[in-house]
Amino acid sequence: MARPNPDKLYIQDVTLRDGMHPVRHRYSLDQVRSIAKALDEAYVDAIEISHGDGISGSTFNYGFGAHDDVEWVAVVADVCKHAVVTVLLLPGIGTLHDLRQVHDVGARSVRIATHCTEADVSRQQIETARKLGMDTVGFLMMAHMASPEKLVEQARLMESYGAECIYVTDSAGALLPKDYMERVKAVRDALRPETEIGVHAHHNLTMGVANAVAGIEAGAVRVDASLAGMGAGAGNTPLEALVAVLDKMGMKTDCNLFKLMDAADDLVRPLQDRPVRVDRESLSLGYAGVYSSFLRHAEAAAKLYNADTRDILIELGKRHMVGGQEDMIIDVALNILKQRGAAA
């Protein structure tokens, strides 16, 4: 999909997708409507809406949503006059049938997300999205777990399947700006000039804005962010802060900063039953290199088995656990309990 204005950055909001995690995927339709309307009026380029783990992520393993994805997508499509309605799809969770359903109610862009070394599972989904005429994006998650060379290999696969944009995604918020820039630049240099590059950062090491800027300076033209940083772990790059920084740097976004500030403070922060912030638990995610959406699952397991959430997260990092292995959180908690009993 050719962007209407290639001379500006493409601002992709993820408040209603990654931001599902802090509210346990329980956004009401009225909340989705009001947030989407505010974002559209603030002139973001795209709004991603789905269960936090992508379309059809509403399961026992990931957490049940308050509504199904078709309902959520239809609400956003109804209020958007400018922003492109976007969904996330993880092969093995969402199906081609699910993709066609959300397309029918207004989704016009899809990000096909895989672990950073498993791009080969995305071919069918990328090809189908292109046939539907959707803006089609490859989304390489947990980018800190692969070398720049490996990311290039995987990005080329997604590009060969038809992806029009490739995201270098720091799902764990574990990368420092220099390392993020290196990965983004490697991917940018390796792909065709017309294939766009996107960046998606988490704030677990407080690097959300810094990494987004580093990615842009390395050649990314699409950048993810969310109101009040609403997202898994310590949250995503906070949208209102990012737009303020980009404006001071002279980078064009066309977003209305004050409207974004108002939406963050008035609509999003009041919904956080657990503050989205850098604290001992979310900091541990970035330090250990653990998938950000593991946070609330790890906290629940820690409470159930009287363990320290940080111990669980550090062990998950040592085991190199990735998205889709949420069941291992209980296994780790039980092992900690067993070791404590043996030590006693």
Rank of each mutant, 00 (worst) to 15 (best):
A288F: 03
L96C: 07
A201D: 05
Y10M: 07
E299P: 12
V213I: 14
R24Y: 15
L39C: 08
D311Y: 10
A201F: 09
R17T: 12
D170T: 13
A155C: 10
Q154F: 07
L239K: 05
V121W: 01
E127S: 04
L271H: 04
R33A: 12
F294L: 14
A214C: 07
A214Y: 00
M251P: 05
D327F: 11
A190V: 05
H82K: 12
A241P: 00
A288V: 08
I314R: 12
Y10S: 01
V245F: 06
Y10R: 02
F294Y: 15
A201W: 03
E326F: 11
L191Y: 09
A218E: 00
Q124K: 15
M1H: 05
T59A: 11
D120K: 14
T237S: 15
D189H: 04
E196Y: 15
A300D: 02
L227Y: 03
R319Y: 12
A155T: 08
A263Q: 00
V152G: 06
A218W: 00
R24E: 08
E281T: 10
D18W: 05
I47K: 00
I126P: 03
V245M: 14
G106I: 14
A342Y: 07
A174F: 08
K338M: 04
G324W: 09
K318Y: 13
T128S: 11
D254L: 02
D7S: 15
A163H: 02
A234I: 09
V221R: 02
Y305S: 08
E71F: 13
V70Q: 01
H82Q: 07
L90K: 12
H82P: 09
F258K: 08
A77I: 12
A264S: 11
F294P: 11
M141D: 03
L239F: 13
H203T: 12
D331E: 11
L246Y: 02
I314M: 14
D266P: 09
